[in-house]
Design a protein around this nucleic acid. Structure first.
Lengths: 108, 108
DNA sequence: CATGATCGTAAGCCAACACTTACGGTAAGG
DNA sequence: CCTTACCGTAAGTGTTGGCTTACGATCATG
């Protein structure tokens, strides 16, 4: 149970930063190189590189060399873990929410 | 589209911190007062209070006075927004992922 | 009305973090 | 080979953020 923290910690922390999430979202259209991602973003290329490193450590992206370039791609695994946590928690929380609402109706 | 950033920014940022997510998860069992939440956590009560403030600003919880105490409860709204973002992105990313995998098979 | 309980906020401190510039390393091209 | 392009990492900096202690406010109790 407390393990669920560790597992989703990286993903949540990674997606917390707006710039980093922007990089990640941009990767949702398909594989991109670092330079492509950096272009159009208000930060430098090394900054994007560092963001990608964090995303990779969180299991959200994978990278693959392509000549002198390096292509990054979304890894469904990390995204799936996040979804699993959210789904499980969604059911639990919603159940507790409804139960509480009913308890408020029946009691004084 | 860029608006989706703003909308989910608060939620992601709020859930990024492990302690804060622990508070939130604990709230998944049902409504709790601040003192109850603080007990069992490795941080002080004011710290929990500040965390709840952030969670509330993110639309993840609601609060209601109960005498001298203050009861916090999960707000399905914020959780739903997060789920919506994740679902939408999941479909998009997975589609791009599969498309890329197939493109790799057909091409040289 | 005085006391104890519960809580939010302010002030201050320290670590984490996002960013920049500078550098080195590798791959394609003339 | 020499040059250019592309990228990751190191070092340094300024800011953000989570935590603690201290304080004031509000509510139930006697």
């Amino acid at each position: 149970m407390t393990n669920a923290l560790q597992r989703t910690d990286g993903a949540f922390a990674a997606l917390a930063d707006p710039t980093r999430r922007q990089v990640f979202e941009r990767l949702g259209d398909g594989p991109r190189a670092v330079g492509e991602l950096a272009a159009g973003l208000p930060v430098s290329r090394p900054a994007v590189s560092q963001h990608l490193k964090v995303l990779k450590a969180a299991g959200l992206v994978t990278d693959r060399p392509d000549g002198a370039r390096r292509v990054y791609q979304i890894d469904p695994q990390g995204l799936g873990q996040l979804r699993a946590w959210l789904d499980r928690f969604w059911d639990q929380a919603l159940a507790a929410f409804v139960a509480e609402a009913e308890r408020e109706d029946t009691e004084d």
